[in-house]
């Protein structure tokens, strides 16, 4: 499995830059090895609570590497909570509790031995509202490296360039790398956030309604980007936009009031839903 994965990487990384940077990373063991082992993610019988409020009930899904999975369902059904279970962002909320197993490559990420910070380096996240740091574009992308103790300017320079290129933002910002990121447009900011997430070479990228605050053109760009990134990452998105789910995802999970109602190939979910609720939702009857 591991070798296959590496080979595949070599093929898809057409850019020379990437190879150089990867090679540079090699000495940092944690960094390169972890990234290549983590690929398959799944949850087994996951339950979540906010205080007494039972928000997710018994969710079991297994997700294949290098796919895009869309989480859909009406607001408040627990999509974000489920997504954030994979990088333990829910842990920041007082009163949050999770039961069941969340496995990344077979390892339970809620284990005592698991370092949350290490986990989050391997599971990148893009948020609903673009949230760049109020710093320069360059520093935004570099931040993930810096908190990992990488301060070599050459490595950082290269990573910034590679990440921005991968996020299809390089051409727009390459002359303004040291301008404040808050000056970018919403769509550019969101691509910057994607660049920031991929700069530390995670295995998984989580996107929580990442395009809902953007105009159609920016949304299109990000959808293209997702299709592109799929080659290197396992991606999970939350979206309220059915067309988007159809356009970009391979698999879709439909959530309803805390239950994962149906999980299947996206085509099946939209063309041939098995459950009444799913049929109503994708048919636009509520939500």
């Amino acid at each position: 499995m591991e070798t296959i994965r590496i080979e595949k990487k070599m093929k898809t990384n057409t850019e020379k830059q990437h190879e150089i940077v990867s090679a540079e990373f090699m000495p940092d063991e944690n960094f390169s090895t972890k990234r290549k082992v983590m690929n398959k993610i799944e949850t087994k019988n996951v339950h979540c609570w906010y205080g007494d409020f039972h928000v997710l009930r018994d969710v079991t899904i297994a997700i294949e590497p290098n796919t895009v999975t869309a989480l859909i369902g009406p607001s408040g059904c627990g999509k974000s909570t489920y997504l954030r279970a994979f990088n333990r962002m829910n842990d920041l909320i007082d009163g949050f509790k999770l039961e069941g197993d969340v496995l990344i490559d077979g390892k339970n990420i809620y284990d005592k031995q698991m370092h949350v910070n290490e986990l989050r380096k391997n599971v990148g996240m893009v948020f609903q509202k673009p949230n760049p740091f109020p710093k320069s574009i360059y520093e935004n992308v570099a931040y993930g490296l810096r908190v990992n103790g990488i301060n070599d300017k050459k490595v950082i320079d290269e990573t910034v360039e590679r990440s921005l290129k991968q996020a299809a933002l390089w051409n727009e910002v390459k002359d303004n790398l040291h301008k404040n990121a808050l000056g970018l447009s919403g769509g550019q900011q969101q691509r910057l956030c994607i660049a920031r997430a991929i700069a530390i070479q995670p295995s998984v990228i989580l996107m929580d309604e990442a395009t809902s605050a953007l105009d159609p053109i920016s949304t299109g760009k990000i959808e293209d980007l997702i299709a592109e990134l799929k080659k290197d990452y396992t991606i999970m998105i939350v979206t309220h936009n059915m067309q988007q789910a159809v356009r970009v995802s391979d698999k879709t999970a439909f959530f309803f009031l805390g239950d994962m109602v149906e999980y299947n190939n996206t085509k099946e979910i939209f063309n041939n839903p098995q459950q009444e609720h799913t049929r109503n939702y994708v048919g636009g009857r509520f939500g």
Binding site: N87, M89, L92, N117, E118, L119, R120, K121, N122, G124, M125, F127, K129, N131, P132, F133, P134, K135, Y143, G144, R146, V147, N148, C193, R196, A197, I200
Partner: peptide
């Protein structure tokens, strides 16, 4: 959201405070 962005990149609590929140 600024803190979340930082934590999501694997920053520790103090890194988040020192490098993002305080500035």
């Amino acid at each position: 959201t600024l803190r979340e962005a930082s934590y999501a990149l694997g920053a520790s609590k103090w890194q988040t405070v020192w490098m993002q929140v305080l500035p």
